[in-house]
Design a protein around this nucleic acid. Structure first.
Lengths: 342, 342
DNA sequence: TTTGTTTATGCAAACCTTTGCATGATACTA
DNA sequence: TAGTATCATGCAAAGGTTTGCATAAACAAA
């Protein structure tokens, strides 16, 4: 029972003028007499006219809709990024079409294709952990859609990208552990494919190396994913070692929380026996007991900046692509789960 | 540099036929010869044709886009509901336009108006805590948009609604506290305006009353909002009372977590001295120490069902509105933060 | 009066697709 | 052979809007 919307033609018929005249009145064209303009505007208001965006989009070839695909909406991390995107985009008149890929490569493609059909004006994508092939991104680019990749890097893909310096965050965290006297520092990783996983691991390894610490295979456990459950499983492995670690640097807070519960169960003291460090600095992390030392990420800003870049691209319609690669700095937040510098 | 999309006219020109013929070939019309159809379909595939959804939308007066407005995306609660919505909608070909109102009444209106302009096919709305006036909902309904209100009820508004039985959840929780021997049961509320706040409070009060417990004004603290910070502030008030409570039923987990940290700081034992119960059963709640007793809500199902109802409405285009009011049942999840039944 | 200028207006095309109706061609029936 | 049925195709309208171009009217200048 959708009521028909008032159109420009309705107004025209009512006043016995042509639709063009009405259009000119509504668009502040100079080629129209002031009196007529006044009459038309009044009627438009009275009849509650609003232009049909569909017709406009068809004409202008732009929808003022941006497509956003994230691996999952239900994570604090990505929803905060979306928050940043929304805040940036809000005043610009652009709307967001948001979807989650559930870390599925196929779903990511499917979603992007659907959005391309709707003719979104551009894409903001955080690739799934199973996205190892970038053909669909290339295709989107070839079709002329502006594309910004955020959070997770696609090495080799030429596109605007905004990421967090995971390497530096991890390096900081592990150096801090070293400075506080930890000797056997373990690492629980996230999904193997992710650029973030790789960078954090590299930061971990390099910090060890720089400080002449041996790299012990046993102490690096590869998680199935980035969940608390994976943290539980991995931490159990670590505690089953003959010689357990005295510090664990976790890929993220969820894993760290899982790890914390296992450590506690076994009656091991945090941080006296094991220092624990997470990544992401989720809101609850400060409320845990002991509160969690973690690497804070400017994830809201990540969304903000990604959206800004996309909007910039939409404005200038550049021909010679000069891709931006923005790296935001994370910060170590020291709390109770790690020992203090002596 | 958006490349022009291949249109039906391009195909027609290429093959020296009319666009109508091409259209018929693509739409499996019987009024076309098999050979020609084959040729056209082949060319369409070769030239990578895909129909312009904008033109179709203009023609069919439907966009296959649904508008979703939630108070905030960054909460586990609403992002999980969106998850449910997404999963329901996914296969149907509908896309989601998602926005957050940030608990602002004006923003909610603005967002809905913008979505109406884009001609979304329907709305899924969880009203902001400051939405006390429902004129904008009525207006949307009058314009013929199907509308489903979820999670937060708008009393007096005639519309399809899907909510959780907050009353029952609260009642269960408080009765459980009574059964486990608590005598001074406090309640920290959420934002005063919310239907959920009111129902949970009513559940709390009625459970006390039914068990002949006195209702003590001191023990009911009104939170500014539903955050952990508010939980901290409210719990401090409770612990500053001459006679502190021996149980606290919190509006949600965030508040409970804040409260827990204050209780711990003061050296009070949970649950021996104070039993603590939350609401929402957020994923981390089970990892807290002590793990949090909480009321689990079928929030994913809430999203799923809301979307289902909206899709149903879109199919049948009913004239005599027969609004549905669905109430989903929450469940008390007992963990360590509350005493056990003796 | 004629020509030129200014100003306001309408027409029609364009954006892309679908579909009712008309037309033309072919084949079949009487 | 004439008439009819069948089938494939194209035309044009519709959906709502903007805009280049043409036109009409009014008026000023020569």
């Amino acid at each position: 029972m959708k009521k028909d919307q008032v159109t420009i033609t309705d107004l025209a018929r009512e006043l016995n003028v042509s639709p063009s005249t009405v259009s000119r009145a509504l668009n502040n064209s100079p080629f129209i007499s002031v009196e007529r303009k006044k009459v038309i505007l009044e009627l438009a208001k009275k009849m509650n006219y609003s232009p049909n965006q569909l017709a406009l989009s068809l004409l202008n070839k732009r929808t003022k809709i941006l497509g956003v695909v994230v691996p999952e909406i239900t994570s604090y991390y990505f929803s905060t990024a979306i928050n940043g995107i929304q805040d940036k985009v809000g005043s610009s008149g652009y709307k967001l079409m948001i979807s989650q890929s559930n870390e599925s490569f196929e779903e990511e493609i499917r979603l992007m294709e659907a959005m391309a059909l709707v003719r979104v004006d551009g894409f903001l994508i955080s690739p799934s952990s199973n996205t190892l092939n970038y053909d669909h991104f290339e295709k989107i680019k070839d079709s002329g859609f502006p594309l910004v990749i955020f959070d997770r890097d696609c090495v080799g893909l030429e596109a605007d990208k905004v990421v967090v310096d995971d390497y530096s965050g991890a390096f900081q965290a592990v150096e801090y552990l070293i400075q506080t006297g930890c000797h056997r520092i373990a690492h629980i990783t996230g999904s193997a494919n992710l650029s973030t996983t790789q960078h954090r691991r590299k930061g971990y390894l390099d910090a060890l190396q720089k400080n002449n610490y041996p790299i012990l295979e046993d102490l690096m456990v590869i998680g199935d994913d980035s969940s608390s459950e994976s943290g539980v499983a991995c931490m159990q492995k670590l505690l089953d070692l003959e010689q357990i670690p005295d510090a664990v640097f976790c890929y993220n807070d969820a894993i760290a929380i899982g790890a914390m519960s296992v450590i506690r169960e076994r009656g091991i003291e945090i941080p006296d026996q094991i220092s624990l460090v997470g990544f992401d600095d989720e809101p609850y992390s400060s409320y845990f007991k002991p509160s969690l030392t973690s690497v804070w990420q400017p994830i809201y800003d990540l969304g903000l900046l990604s959206a800004k870049i996309l909007l910039d691209n939409l404005e200038i319609e550049k021909d010679n692509p000069n891709y931006r690669f923005e790296v935001l700095k994370p910060e170590l937040v020291i709390r109770e789960s790690s020992r203090k510098i002596v």
